[in-house]
């Protein structure tokens, strides 16, 4: 599929979500549906879908110990092993996984190849922008999600209040600027820009890549609008969200249309999540090239379906080559006469 088609299709899809969300917010009779029923259903799809996907992965065994080793193995006592890049104990694996999940270690290695055909010379430069943007995007997203817990918890736990204070430390204007929302929007914007600007990344991109980016940009955008541009009734929203959390939903009046658009976008993201590439959130924990030890000669890894296969035995081999082996002075298990005897018995 051509990239323009992919972008347009994704834009139309997200546009449709926006329209439906707007209708849901504009028609008061639909508020229970868009404020309560759809979000709860979406949440259920997210949780069950996530569990289903992880279980479906877990159902398949890991037949071989296939860690990608990215550093020195543990071998002779005087050679320093690279415990994090080539783990030889479960704790090293925990360290490697923590680096991978919390700091995107592998992405940090990223290089960019440049070919100068005159030299000819190929050079590899360190290329950090993808790593920076990815890290900013994910940590901003996490911060936003945690901060939103204030809408679902009463009283608001101290750690969330602390995070709020950190996030808003700039203290510019009123309402106070919260950094995470802008970082999320900006980083998602960069990821979109990169996808469109780098020809090879554009070439591999699918509507399934643009759609979640547009969706998340819209979520961040409507969130920023609600905080800084149009007024929404935070007290009423909190009444609704606390009601959702306690499963005693109520839909107060005067919440404002943007909230329903925002909530519907989030609902779509939640329901879409388990069936999409966004499941890398779960997959990264289970990737066999990262979560296995590298010292696979030191321990025995079991394959539950280790197949029975036909082996070419030494006896068969010797039977075929016995005469020539004897002639060459190679030792044999059976002399020709014995071999003939045992062949007869069979």
């Amino acid at each position: 599929m051509n990239f323009l088609t992919s972008v347009i299709v994704s834009l139309i899809a997200v546009g449709a979500v926006l329209v439906v969300g707007t209708i849901g917010g504009a028609v008061p009779a639909l508020h229970p549906l868009f404020g309560v029923v759809i979000p709860l259903l979406a949440l259920a799809v997210f949780i069950l879908g996530f569990i289903w996907k992880v279980l479906s992965w877990a159902k398949s065994p890991v037949p071989f110990s296939i860690a990608t080793t990215c550093g020195q193995q543990k071998s002779l006592p005087w050679i320093k092993p690279d415990k994090l890049e080539n783990p030889s104990s479960k704790w090293h694996v925990v360290g490697r996984m923590a680096l991978e999940i919390l700091t995107f270690r592998s992405l940090f290695r990223n290089t960019k190849m440049q070919l100068d055909s005159q030299g000819p010379r190929i050079a590899y430069g360190w290329e950090l922008w993808l790593w920076v943007a990815a890290l900013a995007f994910h940590y901003a997203f996490l911060t936003v999600v945690i901060r939103h817990l204030r809408f679902f918890l009463e009283p608001i736990p101290a750690p969330i209040q602390l995070l709020d204070a950190l996030d808003g430390f700039l203290q510019i204007g009123l309402p106070g600027i919260i950094i995470s929302g802008f970082v999320l929007f900006g980083a998602a914007g960069y990821l979109l820009f990169r996808r469109l600007a780098v020809s090879n990344v554009r070439y591999i991109s699918l509507p399934a890549d643009y759609f979640p980016l547009f969706l998340i940009l819209s979520i961040a955008g409507t969130g920023l609008i609600m905080r800084y541009v149009v007024h929404v009734d935070i007290v009423a929203i909190r009444e609704l969200t606390l009601g959702l959390a306690s499963l005693h939903p109520s839909v107060p009046e005067g919440i404002g249309i943007f909230f329903f658009i925002h909530l519907f976008l989030v609902s779509v993201l939640l329901a879409y999540f388990p069936f999409s590439k966004l499941m890398h959130l779960g997959g990264i924990f289970m990737s066999p090239t990262r979560n296995l030890r590298g010292n696979s000669r030191e321990f025995h890894h079991v394959n539950p379906w280790n197949p029975e296969v036909h082996l070419h035995t030494y006896e068969e081999y010797e039977d075929e080559f016995r005469d020539r082996m004897i002639e060459a002075g190679l030792p044999v298990d059976k002399m020709p006469a014995d071999a003939a005897d045992s062949a007869e018995k069979e």
């Binding site: 592998s106 993808l130 990815a134 591999i204 991109s205």
Partner: peptide
């Protein structure tokens, strides 16, 4: 299932 097509491998 998990590839996000970031293109880091390209």
């Amino acid at each position: 299932d998990t590839c996000v097509r970031c293109g880091a491998c390209a």
